[in-house]
Structure formats: structure tokens, C-alpha cells
């Protein structure tokens, strides 16, 4: 298929890439932009490993075309760190064993960050419900739950300290 030039905005930077119009966003990110954080897990919209944010909203990059995203702001796990160091949620996942083999972690990061941006103080049920859209086959979800709680606590302490 003939390639076309499209412009993608990813993690605050604009990229012009020549791709087939049928190319999946996930493949454009991984193959054309070398952003290999987003993973292909199931490839049938079940696992959430490919989750990225499009205009701040989590979506499955394996189930949308790159060309559909022109003019929108895409955020991948590579765009999550703050000032060159890990974001609170990334650090908490490491501290609490929320990540083991790590394959699902970038997808979880994008889902959980959206959950916390919408609802900075979620209930236990809301956190557990929020994790239902991504699959993990190593650690299970309890360590992630603890990590998220710890990240929320850290965030709140940080805010209290800076007041």
C-alpha cells in the first residue's frame, strides 16, 4: 500500500512519518518512532498492554490507526516521567513489586495515571475497578493496589509539605 506522510504529536513533540494509512498506532509508535514502551500483548483488545493516552484519555493503540490520531496529543509511557526522574506512580510500582516481568506495566501506567487524574482520591473499589481493564500474569493485582495507594499517599504528603 502507498505510504502517506502524516504528522503525529507524541509526548509533546511533533513527528512527520511516512506510513501506510492502515498502520496501527502501536506499530507506528514502536517501529517508526522507536517508542517501544507500549507493548503488543493480545492484539485482540483484551489485555491493555498497548494502552496510550490520546488527548489524555486511555485508548488501545493496537485497535486504532495512527492516521486517525493526526491533530491529537498522544502520551506513551516514555512521556510519563517528570523532569527526567520517575513519576510517583512509577516509583511506587517498583517499590511495592507492582511490576515483575514488566511487560504489562507501561499499559497499567497509562490507565492508572488517567484514573488518578480524574479521581485523585479513589476508593478501594474504584482502584480495583480501574485495574480491570488491563491484564497482568505475573504479580497479580494486590501489589499494584498497594503501589497505587502508596503513590496517592506520597502525592498527598508532597502536597501537604509544599503548602
Amino acid at each position: 500500500m502507498k505510504k502517506e506522510l502524516i504528522e503525529l504529536r507524541v509526548n509533546g513533540r511533533s513527528h512527520e512519518i511516512a506510513i501506510e494509512p492502515s498502520k496501527l498506532l502501536l506499530d507506528a509508535l514502536r517501529q517508526d518512532l522507536d517508542l517501544t514502551g507500549s507493548k503488543r500483548g493480545c492484539d485482540d483488545s483484551s489485555c491493555g498492554a498497548c494502552t496510550v493516552q490520546v488527548d489524555g484519555t486511555p485508548m488501545l493503540s493496537c485497535t486504532m490507526l495512527a492516521a486517525s490520531c493526526e491533530g491529537q496529543e498522544i502520551t506513551t509511557v516514555e512521556g510519563v516521567s517528570e523532569h527526567g526522574s520517575l513519576a510517583a506512580i512509577q516509583k511506587a510500582y517498583g517499590d511495592w513489586g507492582g511490576s515483575q516481568c514488566g511487560y504489562c506495566t507501561p499499559g497499567f501506567m497509562m490507565t492508572v495515571r488517567h484514573l488518578l487524574s480524574q479521581n485523585p482520591n479513589p476508593t478501594e473499589a474504584e482502584i480495583r475497578g480501574g485495574l480491570s481493564s488491563n491484564l497482568c500474569r505475573c504479580t497479580g493485582y494486590s501489589q499494584m493496589y498497594q503501589a497505587i495507594k502508596a503513590a496517592i499517599d506520597a502525592e498527598q504528603k508532597g502536597m501537604a509539605a509544599s503548602r
Binding site: S45, G48, T63, M64, T111, S133
Partner: peptide
């Protein structure tokens, strides 16, 4: 419907 990523799209 499905999960949050699918509902968003």
C-alpha cells in the same frame, strides 16, 4: 461495555 479503553473510543 468492555473496558475503559474501549469505551473511550
Amino acid at each position: 461495555i468492555a473496558d475503559v479503553q474501549v469505551r473511550n473510543r
